[in-house]
Structures are given as C-alpha cells and as structure tokens.
C-alpha cells in the first residue's frame, strides 16, 4: 500500500468501511501481524506492507472505566480498552451491559453501532461466554 495507489488515507478508509457496516483492520503482507489503529507505515516492519482485512470482532476487556454523566445528558457510559483477538488494542465502548458490570477479561463481540449518529465499533458481552 502506498499513497500513489491510494485514493484516500487510512483514517478516511477506515471510516468509509464503517459507513458500509464493516469493521476493518490492517494486516502486514510481510509477516501477517495485525495493526490497529490504521497506519500509513507498519511500525513493526517499517514497510508500507499493510492491507485491509475484516476483523473477527472477538475481543476481551483490557481496562475499563465508567464515566459519570448526568441522567438528562444520557447517564453514565463505559469507555474501555479492548484487546482484539488479532492482537492490537483499541479504545471502545462496551454496551448492552451496565457500565459498572464491565470487567477486565470479559469476552466481547463487536458490532457496528453509532454514537451521536456517527458509526463506530461497539462491543457487547459475548453470548455464552
């Protein structure tokens, strides 16, 4: 992947995929290692060897906090760091569960949702986990 072959940068591409309902991450064509957040250059290989692949959506909670917010503004909400099954970590929100019940190590499954009308990757506790 190089700029001469790209119609847009990785951030715009990532958000375009989200608009299409797809959670895409990057993978190195050299060593197969995954990268998130989306980059121009692979920090592990120092090459422009990244291609887009569909994320499995499997993840576990690495760190979590409940952010206090007034009920009339929407109430408390979760902000978490989650470790994707592919390796990289990302910031996310865990939903479908009381923010205070989000626990480190909890198994998650991704879905595309929205926050304030903007498509984002959300995570919910994995069924049967």
């Amino acid at each position: 992947m190089s700029t001469k072959n790209m119609s847009q940068g990785p951030e715009a591409q990532f958000h375009e995929y989200l608009q299409e309902g797809r959670f895409m991450i990057q993978r190195s064509k050299t060593d197969g290692r995954y990268v998130f957040y989306p980059r121009m250059v692979n920090p592990h290989t120092n090459e422009d060897d990244l291609e887009w692949v569909e994320a499995s959506g499997e993840a576990i909670v690495y760190a979590t906090t409940t952010t206090s917010r007034r009920p009339e503004q929407g109430g408390n909400y979760n902000v978490a760091l989650v470790d994707l099954a592919e390796g990289p970590r990302m910031m996310a929100r865990v939903v479908d569960v009381d923010p205070d019940d989000v626990a480190i190590g909890m198994k998650l499954k991704a879905r595309i949702g929205d926050i304030n009308g903007k498509p984002v990757v959300l995570f919910a506790p994995k069924e049967g986990a």
Partner: peptide, 25 residues
C-alpha cells in the same frame, strides 16, 4: 485523538482511570 474521540473519553481523566483500573486488576 482519532480512533478515540468518538467514544467520548474525557481526556486526560479517562486515560488515568483506565490505567488505575488495570493496576488494581
């Protein structure tokens, strides 16, 4: 921060809360 701001973290507070949660764990 791109890839973070959409989740409405209250920076820098959220970051230190996350680190605290991990340390406690």
């Amino acid at each position: 921060m791109p890839y973070e701001a959409d989740y409405q973290p209250r920076m820098p507070l959220t970051a230190y809360a996350l680190a605290s949660s991990r340390y406690m764990h």
